[in-house]
Design a protein around this nucleic acid. Structure first.
Lengths: 128, 128
DNA sequence: CCTATATTTAACCGAAACGTTAATTAACGT
DNA sequence: ACGTTAATTAACGTTTCGGTTAAATATAGG
């Protein structure tokens, strides 16, 4: 639902795409232009542009015009809201598990994949 | 449906639907049968069944057969993973904001809506 | 003004999401 | 065995999503 649903749905929908998550991860290292963001991905510029529009609509990023570039910048407020929503269930997993390290590892792996070239390969661990 | 993508995509995609979030919220109060879960929603039983299948595929719930019922139960591990992923960005929002209460309020609102009758209500909490 | 660069919009396509109703499977109670 | 209840699967339609290429827009700079 691209229309103005509830913010939480927009946030989670935006996060449901690995390319968009990779874009956010890259943006966590600092602002970047659309071209810089598009460079690692094997998809066309319009496709990236649309991903950015989704992220912007979800208010996960903000784009500021700068000459002929649009510099993108992380906007963490909605991530905060999403985390707060999930945190409701903290008592559940705390009651059952306590293994945090594997999740940290998993997200680090995804981060590496994003930093590389191919964002839609989940177990594509590789070395350089 | 989401064929075997990465788990994180499945998790966020599952959370992107307000009906499914409401189902999870209800399940946070304890296990329930499909019929019990379907009752508050104005959609058909097959639609609910499919939502449950999405949640089960994403491993956010588990269904155990019990006579002619299928009791659904929250499975928090993937929520944990999703929270862990988002937590990467904690430093960003901590650097910029500190208003936590409004998010708590927002999720309470969504919870109320779910508990009521109509799960697809948008809570326009903030301006713009 | 003209051109190169950066990015978006338009038009289109196939696949997936989400809803429906009708039919089906499974288990219970009598 | 039969009928009832619980839930799913089948078949179908509409909308959204994610990708493409081609065209449009905007800005910098000779």
């Amino acid at each position: 639902m691209t229309l103005d649903n509830d913010p939480l749905s927009d946030t989670f929908a935006a996060l449901a795409d690995p390319t968009r998550r990779a874009i956010l991860a890259r943006l966590a290292d600092g602002p970047a232009t659309v071209g810089e963001l598009a460079e690692p991905f094997p998809i066309s510029a319009p496709a990236v542009s649309r991903h950015l529009k989704v992220l912007e609509h979800a208010k996960l990023i903000r784009r500021v015009k700068e000459a002929q570039w649009r510099r993108c910048k992380l906007e963490p407020e909605r991530l905060h809201a999403a985390a707060a929503w999930i945190e409701q269930y903290r008592r559940f997993w705390e009651a059952q598990f306590d293994s945090l390290t594997e999740f940290i590892d998993a997200l680090k792996n995804e981060r590496d994949v994003a930093e590389e070239r191919d964002p839609h390969d989940d177990d594509g661990n590789r070395s350089t």
